[in-house]
Structures are given as C-alpha cells and as structure tokens.
Computed example of a mutant assay.
Amino acid sequence: MSDVDALSERIDALEMRLSYQDVTIETLNQTITAQWTEIDRLTRQLSELKERLREAESNLSGPVNEPPPHY
C-alpha cells in the first residue's frame, strides 16, 4: 500500500469519526436543552408551592407546634 493510499484511508477514518462526533454533540445538546427546560419548569413550580405553603401557614390559627390535646 502506498503512502497516498494510507493517508487517504486515515483521512476517511477521521472524517467518519468527525461525522459521528457531530451527531453525538447535537444529540447531547438537545438533551441538555430539554433538561434545562425541565429544570426551569420545576424551579418555577417549587417557587409557587413555597408561596402557597407560606400563605397556608399564615392563615393557620394558633401555634403550629402546639402538642395534641391528649398530652
């Protein structure tokens, strides 16, 4: 095999690897984007739940840590 053929095969192999890497990078990018979207949604939901909990606690009558009447 000549040096030109060997070099051509190496270039072809590198181009194939690059193609697979491009596909992998794009897939990872889509996955990360979807995860950040979900994280943002969950963060907003958690904030809303915290606010609802604060409102519910402020509407309670009497101390929260009061022992039950059978003590």
Rank of each mutant, 00 (worst) to 15 (best):
residue 23 V to D: 07
residue 70 H to V: 04
residue 24 T to C: 07
residue 54 R to P: 00
residue 53 L to C: 01
residue 30 Q to V: 11
residue 25 I to Y: 03
residue 21 Q to T: 12
residue 14 L to E: 14
residue 67 P to Q: 04
residue 1 M to N: 00
residue 35 Q to R: 14
residue 37 T to C: 04
residue 5 D to H: 08
residue 35 Q to F: 12
residue 47 S to F: 05
residue 13 A to V: 07
residue 41 R to E: 15
residue 60 L to F: 08
residue 60 L to H: 11
residue 52 R to H: 04
residue 12 D to L: 14
residue 27 T to Y: 05
residue 9 E to R: 06
residue 6 A to G: 07
residue 31 T to L: 12
residue 28 L to Y: 09
residue 9 E to W: 09
residue 52 R to Y: 07
residue 2 S to F: 03
residue 4 V to D: 06
residue 25 I to F: 11
residue 25 I to T: 02
residue 18 L to V: 11
residue 36 W to M: 07
residue 50 K to W: 00
residue 41 R to A: 14
residue 2 S to N: 15
residue 60 L to V: 14
residue 55 E to K: 01
residue 7 L to A: 14
residue 17 R to A: 11
residue 47 S to G: 13
residue 28 L to D: 02
residue 32 I to P: 00
residue 21 Q to M: 06
residue 63 P to W: 06
residue 13 A to N: 13
residue 27 T to N: 05
residue 53 L to V: 09
residue 48 E to H: 05
residue 36 W to C: 00
residue 26 E to V: 02
residue 64 V to S: 05
residue 13 A to D: 12
residue 38 E to T: 03
residue 40 D to A: 15
residue 54 R to G: 08
residue 62 G to F: 11
residue 46 L to F: 00
residue 18 L to G: 07
residue 58 S to A: 15
residue 29 N to M: 09
residue 68 P to Y: 01
residue 26 E to W: 01
residue 62 G to R: 13
residue 37 T to Y: 03
residue 69 P to T: 12
residue 1 M to H: 04
